[in-house]
């Protein structure tokens, strides 16, 4: 069991948790993720690593309750525990392996949408700790949905905010802000890292392609094992099939087939698969394959 040591509400339906998991904390890096399972009946849920304390052996996760399983996680408190907590999984952010002096000559732009702030934060922090100031754009539906604002402020070079309803920062989309920074303010970026809803990453990538800024995105595909065993997380990058859990989660945003990825992400949404199964159970015989 993996004990929860801290719970903090960041926004409606969005919680931050510190979890005791020394094996994950010891060797994890920004960009990687982990998988949690609530209980015996639980799904395996992939979550990005938001922060870690190697000495204390703790890992910070942030999640927004969207499906059945994450909704159940909202009821967890300090002292409760996850049944399973495995990681780190996936590859670390590219720059972690690069020479720090090299990095110092690079200008980074991070774009975080919604809970995407959680995975962006450790990356900006990692760079900050090595004396590299990155610009960060944070997008949210409204001011109440903004998370980790202070934390981000303390590690970012410039922080720009955009909200859909204008309740904080720029009234509009993160792409408006990128466009303004580059075309009006004349800022030059060597690399953009965008993490958030797929639709946001798609439009950021379209824009940065026009602006000729190399762009990395982090693909939150549907996963089961997270170790390369099932292919549930596969996506098309350029003309290759990649597994998000082992080849990623970060990929070249200009090569990802977002339309396919977004369709795949909907796979279990339209479908009341569990309800269908229940129906079948009452329908002994299965003669007509009857799920209607």
């Amino acid at each position: 069991m993996y004990e929860i040591l801290k719970v903090e509400k960041l926004a409606d339906n969005t919680l931050l948790m510190d979890v005791k998991a020394p094996r994950v904390a010891k060797y994890c890096d920004p960009g990687q993720f982990l998988i949690v399972r609530l209980d015996e009946k639980g799904e395996r849920i992939p979550l990005t690593i938001c922060d870690y304390d190697r000495e204390a052996g703790t890992v910070t996760i942030v999640f927004q309750a969207v499906g059945t399983s994450t909704k159940k996680m909202l009821s967890l408190g300090v002292g409760d525990a996850f049944k399973d907590f495995v990681g780190p999984l996936g590859c670390a952010a590219e720059f972690v392996k690069e020479d720090v002096d090299n990095l110092k000559n690079k200008k980074f732009l991070f774009v975080a949408g919604g809970v995407g702030c959680a995975p962006v934060y450790p990356q900006v922090k990692w760079l900050h700790e090595r004396g590299i100031q990155a610009d960060v754009i944070v997008g949210a539906r409204n001011a109440d949905m903004l998370i980790l604002e202070e934390e981000m402020q303390s590690v970012a070079g410039n922080l720009y905010i955009a909200t859909d309803d204008g309740s904080a920062g720029h009234h509009g989309l993160v792409t408006d802000v990128i466009k303004k920074l580059v075309t009006v303010d004349g800022k030059a970026y060597d690399e953009c890292i965008a993490i958030g809803p797929m639709i946001m990453m798609k439009f950021v990538a379209l824009l940065t392609k026009e602006l000729a800024i190399p762009t990395i995105v982090s693909m939150n595909s549907i996963m089961v094992d997270g170790t390369g065993m099932c292919g549930a997380c596969r996506l098309t990058v350029g003309d290759e099939i990649k597994f998000a859990c082992v080849d990623g989660p970060e990929f070249d945003g200009h090569l990802v087939d977002f339309d396919e990825a977004m369709k795949r992400q909907q796979m279990y949404k339209a479908d009341e698969t569990k309800a269908m199964l229940k129906l079948k159970e009452n329908h002994v015989g299965g003669c007509c394959g009857g799920d209607q």
């Binding site: 609530l38 009946k41 639980g42 799904e43 395996r44 059945t68 399983s69 159940k72 089961v224 796979m267 279990y268 479908d271 698969t273 569990k274 269908m276 199964l277 229940k278 079948k280 159970e281 394959g289 799920d291």
Partner: peptide
């Protein structure tokens, strides 16, 4: 395959 599992499965016809 059990109704009380949280993991979805597309069974197909």
């Amino acid at each position: 395959i059990n109704a009380d599992s949280d993991t979805p499965l597309i069974t197909g016809r």
